[in-house]
Amino acid sequence: MLDDGQIRILLLRMGARDAGSAEAFERLYRLCAPLLMGIAMRIVRRSEVAEEMLHDSFTRIWQSAATFDPLATRPVAWMVAIVRNRALDTAASHDVARVDAYEEESLDAFFDWSQGAGTRSLRDCLARLEAAERQALVLAYQHGLSHSELAAQLQKPLGTVKSWVRRGMANLRDCMEGVR
């Protein structure tokens, strides 16, 4: 899986903008494009649209590499945020394409639970949430649904869905911080 240390070095070499920067970028692309494409696909659901997101995101990644502060940010999370932001914006302007029913996929298809600090507590804490809270959070995260899309999807009033998300988040945080 993607290693932050390796990605960080590639980003620094890209930022240098000298002979070899293009190779670093190509390597970064080969490593990260499949994951970023997968994330975009979950949100926009059509490969030609997702590829457009991917193109825009990597353009942005290339342009921002020179100013990217590798110590301040986790590079994989940074790139994921770029793609998600782009995809969320697009999804918001293509409401019609998002009427098909979403299934709450198992988060196991999304995450590799075997690695990463704090992973166990996230998994356990998710399991301890109210079913409605968990479903709202997971759907929103996996498919980038907005509050109103969630409300339509779950056939509940907007206010109810918003409070599920908010409560779910607070409970998750308290659980992970060991408050309860």
Binding site: R17, A22, Y29, P34
Partner: peptide
């Protein structure tokens, strides 16, 4: 606190995407 993404998430994009990036960003000079 977020776990790593699963490899099952990965979807291979068309090779067109990279070719277009290479051309538009003028990568040859780097």
């Amino acid at each position: 606190k977020a776990p790593r993404y699963s490899a099952k998430m990965e979807t291979r994009p068309s090779p067109r995407v990279w070719r277009r990036l290479e051309k538009e960003l003028g990568l040859e000079q780097y």
